[in-house]
């Protein structure tokens, strides 16, 4: 597989959220606005790339039996780093993402890529895979955030498009489920037409 293909697969063909249905908790939880979605997506990308690189580097040193615990420790370390750095330099974003930052640890996407990809492939492939998957995740979250923000409060990234209050339900919990459901259906449609 060429590196380019390896990189672009995360956006539509193997999109972590729309196709693989991984990491749905943050995808639903933080996407009340496009900005929050993007912030969460980039934080996850950082964790994904870093843990993929480290796992790929030390994979030969780790005995098979303690593989999963080792991966979890590595991932949790990077998550804590993100948490501390974000609290220091982006306190507003940190406040609105809240609980979902420490929960990157249990995002099945991160552990899944470490286990299924990085523990088998070389450094460059793992790096590209992490970057592609992470940005695909960020893309999905930003898109869902933008849809919910547009329908819910008539704005995208805080810039108002439509006058009025919008459909509040899209900012609330039900809108997250329904919005994601229709975006997945749309992805199915695009994939079939390819």
């Amino acid at each position: 597989m060429s590196q380019l293909k390896n990189f672009t697969k995360g956006f539509i063909k193997e999109n972590p959220v729309f196709v693989l249905l991984l990491g749905l908790c943050p995808a639903l939880g933080v996407t009340t606005s496009a900005f929050n979605g993007l912030g969460m997506g980039l934080a996850t990308t950082f964790v994904l790339v870093s843990s993929n690189v480290v796992v790929s580097l030390i994979k030969s040193q780790i005995p098979d039996k303690v593989r999963i615990p080792s991966f979890i420790v590595i991932i949790a370390s990077f998550v804590t780093i993100v948490q501390l750095v974000m609290e220091a330099f982006l306190p507003d974003l940190f406040a609105s993402l809240g609980l979902f930052i420490p929960l990157i640890v249990v995002n099945c996407l991160v552990l899944g890529r470490a286990e299924a990809f990085a523990s088998k492939k070389n450094l460059v492939s793992s790096l590209v895979d992490g970057l592609g998957m992470g940005l695909g995740f960020a893309f999905a979250l930003t898109l869902l955030g933008a849809v919910r923000e547009l329908l819910g409060s008539g704005a995208i990234f805080g810039y108002p498009f439509i006058q009025g209050d919008g459909m509040l339900v899209f900012v609330l919990a039900p809108g997250a489920f329904i919005g994601l459901g229709y975006l997945i259906a749309l992805t199915n449609l695009i994939k079939k037409n390819e």
Binding site: Q61, I62, P63, V66, P69, S70, V73, I74, A76, S77
Partner: peptide
């Protein structure tokens, strides 16, 4: 095995 995990945890 335990040693590897210990090393990883300490480094982390």
């Amino acid at each position: 095995m335990v040693l590897t995990l210990l090393v990883i945890t300490v480094v982390a």
